[in-house]
């Protein structure tokens, strides 16, 4: 296991005595893509700012690429980082290319690479137009292009897919996956839960400044113990009989041919076997595992309850 590219250790942050982050510890390794999810004000942006060294933790420590991002070697750490802020805006009268040149200069990079980056985000044709003529999605892509300047080893992306259409979203995640293969650490803060759950390695759920859960989708499912939802289609009229034998399951809906129920994930095979044992023919079976939306809601509710 290599050393993590970014790490928070018991990090807390308060503004004028108001705590916005409580004792958060988590680390992301090279080549890992982690989603940071949570309601507005849950502390996602605060974590990004801490990692960028724009604010200092009230207690605990922050490390990025082996440096304290708010310390004296901050510039060293930031050379290896790319950042896309939640609301990205650029001087309206500059062209896309000029903006890229400006940021490349700040990152001590050659301009030549900018053409490739503008190509990657699909702005090659618009690069000599002024930014004020860009659509929201184009600005967002320009924001993404500047984050990729200088092949960063750590990418912090705050709501990266807002304003992107489905095709662009897919190509965005393709870009992220190829960066991951190169060993780049990616931290994504987003509300777009469904599009992330199959694409990220780990998910960190924040609520009210606390880290509520941190793990892979499978880990989270296991930990959350949310039931799986199963829909059985039986031969005519047998659904009612099947439902009677599904003790322990939470029957949600029965009509002539279908029965829909919730059950703990590990019991699902046992229940299905019981139905077939009483001679009901199962024509079709759909299993819906708890998705990130449901897990997320569970933790948000817990967050409410514990505060």
């Amino acid at each position: 296991m290599s050393a993590p590219n970014l790490e928070l250790e018991n990090t807390a942050k308060a503004y004028d005595g108001l705590r916005v982050l409580h004792d958060v510890s988590f680390a992301v390794s090279p080549g890992e893509v982690v989603a940071l999810v949570g309601h507005n004000g849950a502390g996602k942006t605060t974590i990004m700012k801490l990692l960028l060294g724009l604010i200092r933790p009230t207690s605990g420590s922050v490390q990025v690429l082996g440096h304290d991002p708010a310390g004296s070697n901050a510039a060293q750490a930031r050379l290896g980082m790319g950042f896309l802020p939640e609301t990205v805006s650029f001087p309206a009268n500059m062209t896309g290319r000029e903006i890229m040149n400006f940021y490349a200069r700040l990152k001590r990079q050659v301009r030549g690479d900018n053409d490739r980056l503008l190509e990657t985000v699909g702005l090659a044709d618009a690069s000599d137009r002024r930014v004020k003529t860009y659509s929201k999605g184009m600005r967002q892509r320009l924001g993404l292009a500047q984050a990729l300047i200088g092949s960063p080893r750590v990418l912090l992306l705050d709501e990266p897919t807002t304003g992107l259409d489905p095709t662009l979203r897919r190509s965005f995640y393709d870009t992220i996956m190829s960066l991951k293969d190169e060993g780049v650490t990616v931290l994504l803060a987003s509300h777009a839960l469904s599009e992330m759950e199959s694409r990220v390695d780990r998910i960190a759920i924040m609520s009210k400044g606390r880290l509520m859960a941190d793990g892979s989708m499978t880990d989270l499912r296991k930990k959350a113990q949310l039931p799986a939802r199963i829909r059985l289609t039986t031969d005519d009229g047998a659904a009612g009989r099947a439902a009677e034998h599904l003790q322990g399951a939470d029957i949600r809906h029965v009509n002539g041919r279908t029965v829909e129920f919730d059950c703990a994930s590990e019991n699902k095979m046992e229940l299905v076997r019981r139905v077939t044992d009483i001679g009901v023919t199962i024509e079709d079976m759909e299993i819906e595992l708890p998705n990130l939306d449901r897990i997320y809601e569970l933790y948000q509710d817990n967050g409410e309850a514990s505060s």
Partner: peptide, 10 residues
């Protein structure tokens, strides 16, 4: 929000 981005640079 442009300062946030500017200061994220080295």
């Amino acid at each position: 929000g442009t300062l946030l981005l500017l200061l994220s640079y080295p």
